[in-house]
Design a binder for these strands. Structure first.
Length: 208
DNA sequence: TAGTAGCT
DNA sequence: GCTA
């Protein structure tokens, strides 16, 4: 894993948003994908619903001691898979190392949300605010097809679009920790990493 | 208000 | 990219 210069696209747009294009080499992407697919075998992807009962277009699962879930009861972190009732699989060591390098922190993330975008799946503009410790950054790893990521200030100013390609890592920290962000669309067939196409996003957080 | 549709 |  190469040392990557932080590209803070925030200068004048959004301070605290870090972007590391190409953090993971193609071989590292393939290795990570294998690990994630094994976790998905243990904790199958499912389609959550919003508290209002609307289905998400992305399919989700989690790794770590806590996983982010949504259902009619609301958003929360919980230690077990909502369908199997089993604990989530562990966060792979490769991702713990990535967190340490990207954040420079001594602690470890306890939650890794796995989102699969396939068949025109999107994610509306939102803020990550279900974590107990909102001082800790959020780190995102992209695998597979390129996404059009939209990000803007927490208080509702202008948004900017950033392309996130396979192997890119980005982070929301400090003044960008509560940034509004979402996925407008995924560019089909822009990567050959994932059999059957699509994009997997891994989001590392401190939930507790 | 972690959705979706529809318009500029 | 914004509004409902």
């Amino acid at each position: 894993m190469a040392e990557a210069a932080v590209r803070d696209i925030g200068a004048g747009i959004l301070p605290g948003f870090g972007l590391w294009p190409g953090w993971l080499s193609p071989p590292d992407q393939a290795t990570l994908l294998e690990t994630v697919l094994a976790a998905i075998d243990e904790a199958p992807l499912y389609q959550p619903v919003t508290p209002g009962g609307r289905p998400f277009s992305v399919r989700m699962t989690n790794m770590g001691s806590l996983g982010w879930v949504s259902d009619r009861a609301g958003y929360r972190y919980q230690p077990t898979h909502p369908e199997t009732g089993r604990p989530w699989p562990a966060i792979p060591p490769m991702l713990l190392a990535l967190w340490a390098e990207a954040t420079g922190r001594e602690d470890q993330p306890d939650a890794c949300l796995v989102n699969l975008y396939r068949n025109s799946a999107k994610m509306g503009l939102h803020q990550d605010r279900d974590e107990a410790d909102m001082g800790a950054p959020v780190v995102s790893v992209s695998l597979g097809d390129t996404a059009m990521f939209r990000i803007g200030p927490a208080d509702g100013g202008r948004t900017a679009t950033v392309r996130l390609a396979s192997g890119d890592v980005c982070a929301l920290s400090g003044p960008a920790r509560l940034a509004r962000h979402g996925i407008d669309r995924v560019l089909e067939e822009s990567s050959r990493l994932i059999a059957g196409g699509g994009r997997i996003n891994l989001t590392l957080r401190k939930a507790a």
